[in-house]
Design a protein around this nucleic acid. Sequence first.
RNA 1: ACAGUGAAUCGGCUUGUCGCUGGUCAUGUAUCAGAGGAAAGUCCGGGCAACACAGGGUAACCCGCUUCCUAACGGGAAGAGGCUCGUGAGAGUCAGAUAGUGUAGAAGAAAACAACCGCCUCAUUCUUGUGAGGUAAGGGUGAGAAGGUGGGGUAAGAGCCUACCAGGUCUGUGGUGACACAGACGCUGUACACUCCGGGUGUUGAAAGUUCGCGUAAACUGGCGUCUGAGGGCGACCCGUUCGAGCCAGAGGGUAGAACGAUUGAGGUGUAGGGUGACUUACAUCCUAGAUAAAUGACAGGCACUGCUCCGCAGUACAGAACCCGGCUUACAGAUUCACUGUCUCU
RNA 2: UGGGCUAUGGUGUAAUGGUAACACUGCAGAUUCUGGUCCUGCCUUUCCUGGUUCGAGUCCGGGUAGCCCAA
Length: 118
Amino acid sequence: MTINGLPREERLKSLKAIEALFSGTNRSATDFPLKVIWRNTSEPTSRLLVSVSKRQHRRAVARNRIKRQIREAYRLHKDSVTTPCDIAFLWLSKDFFPTTVITRKVTSLLNKISCADS
RNA sequence: ACAGUGAAUCGGCUUGUCGCUGGUCAUGUAUCAGAGGAAAGUCCGGGCAACACAGGGUAACCCGCUUCCUAACGGGAAGAGGCUCGUGAGAGUCAGAUAGUGUAGAAGAAAACAACCGCCUCAUUCUUGUGAGGUAAGGGUGAGAAGGUGGGGUAAGAGCCUACCAGGUCUGUGGUGACACAGACGCUGUACACUCCGGGUGUUGAAAGUUCGCGUAAACUGGCGUCUGAGGGCGACCCGUUCGAGCCAGAGGGUAGAACGAUUGAGGUGUAGGGUGACUUACAUCCUAGAUAAAUGACAGGCACUGCUCCGCAGUACAGAACCCGGCUUACAGAUUCACUGUCUCU
RNA sequence: UGGGCUAUGGUGUAAUGGUAACACUGCAGAUUCUGGUCCUGCCUUUCCUGGUUCGAGUCCGGGUAGCCCAA
């Protein structure tokens, strides 16, 4: 298995897990235009969820573009989070950002998570 | 050359690094494949699936020029007629019915059994008038005024007669037909709705449905009923018929995993035939996404094209499969091809 | 993904195809010594865009925005 992969097991799909994550009691952090919510789990790996609202981007092409940028940034820098977590990234802007900016925001948020864990 | 009209096609290519989904096998940093012309809107039609399906009647809804195409369609092709727009190539749009019934605000005398003003005749009279009748040519209202215009005719007028024009009916000819042409008949307001005629429609919608797995509450409360028949089926209603011991509501509990459905199909491409065409027949050949909190990407370079302030910089549309097809509609940078039109110039 | 619905002054609602109505709010005027009440007036491209019709908020296409249902 490759180091920087993002296989199916590392994506958050269970309805129960998502409800637990968005129950309001978990920790969150914001670095505009990104908001992150996470909780520690007993799963073997971390799991990722990316959400871009239809209110902000009506076209599916635009939503896919942003989600792919975030997913790519997470894939390349996910080893900065050591303990397994369920992580949800929410997009808050109605505009587009370059991939370098998004990568910087994602890494800083991932560092925040690992600091809070330790 | 410029400006347009119609039809059709394409709608970037490529290298590297790191990834994602599926297939295959020799099971590994293996190899192959991986968004569209609209995948969109969900406006129609069908396949497919589940449920329903003795019969009769009544409603409701949809379609409506003709002939054809098609699995089917509200779609398409080729045609026919009217109206509107355009110098033109062309574009848009409308509609079954001489049956019958109803409605048509305001304005106007009158909106379909029409006489206000006017015109004409007769009677009467104080000859500025009054009464009786005729008259749809003129006035004004209106979207629409009793087919239109000219001539004859008449007391004045009128399809009353006639010529031309628009429409209708009948007859004949041509056409599969819508219709066209010719002749005869003076037959003639418009729009909408109901109605009538012809054709069609069971309901739901892949979160359909099938199988396996995990788990719970076959428990609790209230109401109705068990041949004195609750409730249900014949998906609108009625008749009729049939099943029938459970049904309805409340609060609460459990699961939310996997496989099939699911991509070989009214399939694509080519050649040859049929047809004006939509389309179709035969043969050959190809297999071309199949996900499910949902892949098809991110980054860096090269080429191509376009623009500009031109050794450079910027840009490259609309848009992302969700069971599958056939259409329609809407969005779309730019490029190409064919046919045709108008204007100008030259030969 | 599949079904269904709505859009009218600032807000909430009306309106057979025939002059867009009502209530509240806001503004202006009038009344009052002043304020309130009361009275009068004003504020609308009927979501956009084509069509049918003499005439469309209403009927019919297309688009936009918003909402609801199905686990």
